[in-house]
């Protein structure tokens, strides 16, 4: 059953406009809309889409919209879905950014933002901690510490650290496979 393009657009627009907390918060809403409400995808197709979107770089919500869009309506579907999910953010943020500087000079706004910045650091720390908690092997902790030192202390560019760590993961997995095979 192929959904009409305008339906696809409005489904993504709605989720983009009313979900706070980023891409991960959107996933259950995508599932409700596309699997349970309209039945465009079954559970397994949805799970596949999720794995793929998380294994590729990029914005999870956009990856998901584009993948679903292609699957249901090809290239035009991808375009319509991607624009739908991004458009509300795009407009809301520009409206806020346009007014932001008029108020930032106000001493009360400034005091409030002094506190809000602390909240942001706690949010970032928490995001790191949640990933860290799932990687508490000796190897995992070593890589977390190594990345931290490289980026925060040695000031290596995160771009190269990401490439190096991906390569390192690949090589070490392949090596342990070879060792497994040799020692079997």
């Amino acid at each position: 059953m192929d959904p009409a393009l305008y339906k696809l657009f409005f489904s993504f627009l709605k989720i983009g406009a009313f979900t706070f907390g980023g891409g991960y918060a959107m996933i259950p809403l995508f599932e409700r809309e596309f699997v349970h409400r309209y039945g465009y995808l079954d559970e397994e197709e949805f799970a596949d889409a999720l794995v793929i979107c998380q294994s590729l770089p990029g914005v999870i919500a956009i990856n998901f919209a584009v993948f679903i869009g292609i699957k249901l309506r090809g290239g035009v579907g991808a375009l319509v879905s991607g624009i739908g999910v991004a458009l509300p953010s795009f407009i809301i943020i520009m409206v806020i950014a346009a007014f932001f500087f008029q108020y930032i000079e106000n001493p009360y706004v400034e005091a409030a933002f002094t506190g809000v910045r602390v909240s942001v650091i706690a949010l970032i720390f928490t995001a790191g901690f949640r990933i860290f908690r799932r990687n508490r092997t000796l190897f995992g902790v070593f890589l977390v510490a190594l990345t931290f030192v490289l980026v925060a202390i040695a000031y290596v560019h995160p771009f190269f650290v990401i490439l190096a760590m991906g390569l390192f993961g690949y090589v070490s997995s392949k090596t342990s496979e070879v060792v497994d095979r040799a020692t079997r």
Partner: peptide, 18 residues
Amino acid sequence: AIFTGLRPALAGLIFASA
């Protein structure tokens, strides 16, 4: 295989940012 190295690196990167 790539993700076995990438996942912990992401935690380290985010801590560095914090």
